[in-house]
């Protein structure tokens, strides 16, 4: 039985079918639905955060310092009397942006290098694979610290460091996926149609690898957020008083012992939910994209 899933009768193509399938996956898999919901909240917070928060995240008010969570200050206030809720919400934009840009950057570097390595083989493959091996030889977080320390303490360098650290992962996945397709029938057919090698790589192989890369990008998003927060936590990258989850956790950590737990707890919760969301989202996306699971 080779082909039991012959032509379905309903016209099932285009955007409508994708949405219908997404709907089906969310309905069947509650966890994925939850992740999609979280994602929408994060996206809204990132887009409109500064406009919807009740307080100015930078405005200090020493008379209201170190207040526990209450109806006025949902997440309490920190040592300078700043509203923790406003700061957590506003921080979403920065952390989200760092994650997005680093993931796009690593896709452009690692993804494309990996596809080329897998498709062309030979020297391209050797160079890309050895670069990946070299990066893998370092403890990744220490490498990211080193890059930021060496290049300068800026948000741009955090993005770059996060991208470089993830390079091997993308390069290897893209390489493996391109490699199994390089002698595929449709690639041979593309050669017969007069496509040059570069056009086959970009026009035929890359679109077929994109779904896998998108899933990978979602999974890496969580790691990228964690990495950025981690660098900020140890004092690299983003500087106070900018609201950022990592810094806020670092600042609040000192107050944990004296009982003011909310300063570190809520940014930490935001961080956790964001990472959680992107990891679950990655799993959900894989279900949507993977036709084998379409039963």
């Amino acid at each position: 039985m080779s082909d039991t899933t012959a032509a379905p009768s309903a016209p099932t193509h285009g955007m409508g079918a994708v949405l219908r399938h997404a709907q089906y996956v969310i309905r069947e898999n509650k966890v994925t639905g939850f992740a999609f919901g979280l994602f929408v909240i994060i996206l809204l917070a990132a887009l409109f955060g500064p406009h919807i928060v009740p307080y100015d995240p930078l405005a200090s008010n020493t008379s209201a310092a170190l207040q526990a969570p209450s109806a006025r200050h949902w997440f309490g206030t920190d040592q300078l009397g700043r509203d923790v809720f406003s700061r957590v919400v506003v921080a979403t934009r920065l952390d989200f942006a760092i994650a997005i840009f680093s993931v796009v950057l690593v896709f452009l570097m690692g993804g494309l290098a990996g596809v080329a390595a897998g498709f062309f083989g030979g020297w391209t493959d050797r160079i890309v694979s050895r670069i990946a091996d070299t990066i893998m030889a370092f403890p990744l977080f220490v490498l990211a610290m080193g890059i930021v320390a060496a290049l300068g303490n800026t948000v741009e360098n955090i993005v770059l460091a996060t991208a470089i650290v993830n390079f091997p992962l993308y390069a290897r996945i893209a390489r493996a996926e391109a490699n199994v397709r390089r002698e595929a029938g449709f690639v041979q057919a593309a050669r017969l149609s007069g496509n040059g090698e570069m056009r086959i790589l970009l026009g035929h192989i890359l679109p077929n690898i994109m779904p896998i890369m998108v899933v990978q990008m979602s999974l890496t998003m969580g790691y990228a957020i964690l990495n950025a927060a981690g660098l900020s936590f140890i004092g690299l990258g983003v500087r106070p008083p900018t609201p950022e989850w990592g810094i806020m956790v670092a600042e609040g950590a000192a107050f944990m012992v004296s009982g003011e737990w909310w300063i570190a707890f809520f940014p930490g919760l935001g961080l956790m939910m964001a990472v959680f969301c992107f990891n679950l989202l990655g799993d959900g996306l894989r279900d949507i994209i993977d036709p084998q699971r379409r039963t």
Binding site: D3, A184, G185, F186, Q188, A189, A190, L192, G194, H204, P207, N208
Partner: peptide, 19 residues
């Protein structure tokens, strides 16, 4: 190239799934 063409063994595998 135009003058020599080919029909492949596996019709599924020889079509780009995204075309």
């Amino acid at each position: 190239r135009k003058r020599i063409q080919m029909v492949f063994q596996d019709p599924t595998e020889s079509l780009n799934p995204r075309f």
